[in-house]
Design a protein around this nucleic acid. Sequence first.
DNA 1: GTCTATAACGTGATAGAC
DNA 2: GTCTATCACGTTATAGAC
Lengths: 185, 185
Amino acid sequence: MRERLIESTRELLWERGYVGTSPKAIQQRSGAGQGSMYHHFRGKPDLALAAIARSADDMRVRAEAELSGSASPLQRITVYLRRERDALRGCPVGRLTQDPDVMADPELRRPVEETFAWLRTRLAGVLADARSQGELDASLDPAATATALVAVLQGGYVLARAAGDAEVYAQAVDGALGLLAGHAR
Amino acid sequence: MRERLIESTRELLWERGYVGTSPKAIQQRSGAGQGSMYHHFRGKPDLALAAIARSADDMRVRAEAELSGSASPLQRITVYLRRERDALRGCPVGRLTQDPDVMADPELRRPVEETFAWLRTRLAGVLADARSQGELDASLDPAATATALVAVLQGGYVLARAAGDAEVYAQAVDGALGLLAGHAR
DNA sequence: GTCTATAACGTGATAGAC
DNA sequence: GTCTATCACGTTATAGAC
């Protein structure tokens, strides 16, 4: 049951955010009763922390798998950017940055902060490798470029949702890769 | 009073989103009572529509002023991207894409959809001008590049909020301009 | 571990007095 | 136009039985 509660919370946090997710909705989706939920977790924040931590871990594990492959640095970045994502659903971690109650709670906020800090640093490292291997223009700043690329993904979700069209997300990625191509050697 | 209600709703929508904003909070911030609010507006959705429409108009008017200047196309794009923004506060229109109740209501959603559709198209037009004037590489696709640039701004907000540091937003913009620079003639 | 009962408080709105 | 009273319902728990 504990597992079902975490998974249901994860889905609801993804769909509706923290503010928009009630304990009642979690209980209904998971099939757990009030007593069961409050037996396994101290309350909504405690359960949300477990769900957020898991989403953050997932995101990191996936990215690491793609960014640490055996292909060339630039190829790994392309694979990472082009990975199929559910664009209209958005990013389960990124969406939490818009949640005032999550950002106000240091415990809930930490996984969000750490995940993006790690991702930007990790991507900057791969870009630095691409540069040192002569695959990429030396004039490109790895840290700023990495931040811009992660921003394209996060912003791509925003634009795809605004348009109600997943293709807009793909277009943002295409645009980023087009810009990056001009710096490839 | 009508004016104060709209402005207070705009602020709260920006800070807490639609789901996280209650009529009571709006009344307290605006100094209006229940009766006053329900006299001027039919309810929360009606008031939110007025607030959202105004934020969308603002965003469009500002962007148009920068993108239609007399400087060269690439310079205008740089001015637009570098305009000072309250990065930790985020985009008042973009944040609404994460709000399930806004996206589920066609009336509330329309201004969001139209604003970003207009912005992407407008920016693509300026990029096309830059290209036809020989200021920018002919290989760059204007539409995809425009979508990527708008995504960098929207994603920049996400990353800045995640890091709790407005500088991260500036870094995303720097990264985008660095990528664009490689295609300048 | 899970259930039901209970409760204090907030939400979103209506009604009618002033 | 604005105010207070009222209301049905939802939220976020706690308590204790099973």
